[in-house]
């Protein structure tokens, strides 16, 4: 079990292009073609919006006070949203990659 099993590009002169890779132009690189493009944008937007909504705006409107506040519930809700989104992302990626294989 040693270096033979390791997939690595370390040791390239700039940690860069493996030998034999065809040259690339700026325009050739297009992220919108990747399986993760839309899931990444959508999931990160949901995280950001839910943070502002459940961690900022709604609790801010409540104004605090004693007992179980609105913030208590919205923060728990944010936790549920964040805990679930990884599964949504992975399902989406898998679906896109299955589409590639077919």
């Amino acid at each position: 079990m040693g270096s033979d099993d390791i997939s690595t590009l370390e040791g390239e002169s700039t940690g860069g292009r493996p030998e034999g890779t065809p040259s690339l132009a700026y325009e050739d690189v297009n992220l919108s073609l990747t399986a993760g493009y839309k899931p990444t944008i959508a999931v990160s937007l949901v995280v950001a919006v839910s943070f502002v909504l459940f961690g900022g705006v709604i609790p801010g409107m409540d104004g605090g006070g004693g007992g179980m506040t609105t913030m208590t519930y919205t923060i728990v809700l944010w936790g549920i949203v964040v805990g679930s989104l990884g599964f949504v992302y992975e399902y989406w990626i898998e679906r896109n990659e299955r589409g590639r294989a077919e």
Binding site: L24, A25, G36, I93
Partner: peptide
């Protein structure tokens, strides 16, 4: 394009 070789490698498997 040469400077984006690494960038392309990171994302290439999911194209």
């Amino acid at each position: 394009g040469e400077e984006l070789v690494g960038f392309g490698t990171f994302h290439s498997h999911s194209i």
